[in-house]
């Protein structure tokens, strides 16, 4: 069988609000995301639409979801509609009381962001003193309530050399999965790119080391989200969906209901409350471009194109204005696209 196509996405990433108690240096959403917020009733309508469409997973991001006063009611409602809800939080507000509410609301898992194993680096990167300690106590509070947790780390110049030190730290808090996210050049991430983003060669070195770390730590799942890793012979994963998964497995819904292929691309394909989502999923020219990429530049002669498909489409689009441009993080020789 070679025709992998879903009648609906498997995951919807949704932002109920972009309000945040942090001002992180790499924040992808600050400065580019809508300030308009739909009401709780609107979001209930959205849950109903997604449930009717048989979307199984709803991941709540933002902004900081815990600033939304009706978050738990929304999750309870969505659960009743058959959606499995998770969220990403900076953990600062996640005290024992909140952990109990999270458990009661029925979250399937909660992801906490930690960007360095060093307290002072994390706090300065996240622009909030005490945020490292609060992130760890959020993990502890969730573990006490038996809520499944994951940790997300955005890789940048600040943590590329010591990221592996986070593994024993988070293992103490029963964390099941560690996501090592590639740096996204959108929002503040774009503004601070020169300072924070790795060069293609540094990405290569980082991924080589990260695969070693993964091999040496089989008791925790270490996950990546970067198709260019196929360039490394030691990376032998063969995911069912090749290249970037945006618009193939997932979609993103903003706080005003606008739909984009992912949270890092500002290309709007429609609005969940105004447009026919099923039609958009099947017919959107943007989604069809993402699903049917055409190799350009050095990708045309790349032996792993079939698996990579040009890498992260958001990065290519932001940096070159063209989804088909080779991923700017790609270290393959044959052209400079940064």
């Amino acid at each position: 069988m070679n025709n992998f196509f879903l009648n609906a996405p498997l995951t919807i990433n949704i932002s109920l609000s972009y309000r945040c108690n942090f001002t992180c240096h790499h924040c992808y959403s600050r400065e580019i995301s809508p300030t308009e917020e739909l009401t709780f009733d609107d979001f209930k309508k959205i849950s109903q639409i997604l449930s009717d469409w048989k979307v199984p997973f709803l991941n709540i991001g933002g902004g900081e979801p815990l600033l939304v006063s009706w978050l738990f009611d929304f999750v309870k409602f969505s659960n009743q509609k058959g959606l499995h809800c998770s969220m990403n939080s900076n953990g600062y507000l996640l005290d024992k009381e909140k952990a109990k509410e999270i458990k009661k609301a029925g979250f399937t898992s909660v992801g906490i962001s930690i960007d360095s194993p060093k307290e002072e680096v994390h706090d300065s990167f996240r622009n909030k003193k005490g945020s490292f300690k609060r992130a760890l106590s959020a993990l502890e509070n969730l573990a006490e309530e038996n809520v499944k947790t994951t940790v997300s780390m955005v890789i940048s110049k600040l943590n590329k050399d010591d990221f592996e030190e986070i593994v024993p730290i988070v293992e103490n808090y029963k964390v099941k999965q560690l996501y090592l996210h590639n740096y996204k050049c959108s929002g503040m991430g774009y503004k601070n790119m020169e300072k924070l983003d790795l060069t293609p060669q540094e990405w290569k070195e980082f991924y080589k080391k990260a695969l070693e770390v993964r091999k040496n730590n089989p008791h925790i799942t270490i996950s990546f989200d970067d198709p260019i890793m196929h360039l490394l012979p030691e990376y032998n994963e063969r995911p069912l969906v090749r290249g970037s998964t945006c618009g193939k497995l997932s979609l993103n819904i903003h706080s005003n209901g606008d739909i984009t292929p992912c949270g890092f691309m500002s290309v709007k394909i429609g609005n969940i409350l105004k447009d026919d989502i099923i039609k958009l999923w099947k017919e959107s020219p943007v989604l069809n471009t993402l699903r049917n990429p055409v190799p350009q530049g050095k990708c045309t002669s790349c032996s792993i194109y079939e698996n990579c498909l040009g890498g992260c489409k958001a990065r290519a689009f932001i940096m070159a204005g063209d989804f088909n441009n080779p991923d700017p993080h790609c270290w393959k020789e044959g052209g400079d696209n940064r």
């Binding site: 069988m1 070679n2 025709n3 196509f5 879903l6 498997l10 799942t221 996950s223």
Partner: peptide
């Protein structure tokens, strides 16, 4: 060639 049942398990 048509996928009619999608299965997911732990990633």
């Amino acid at each position: 060639n048509l996928g009619v049942l999608t299965l997911i398990k732990a990633g």
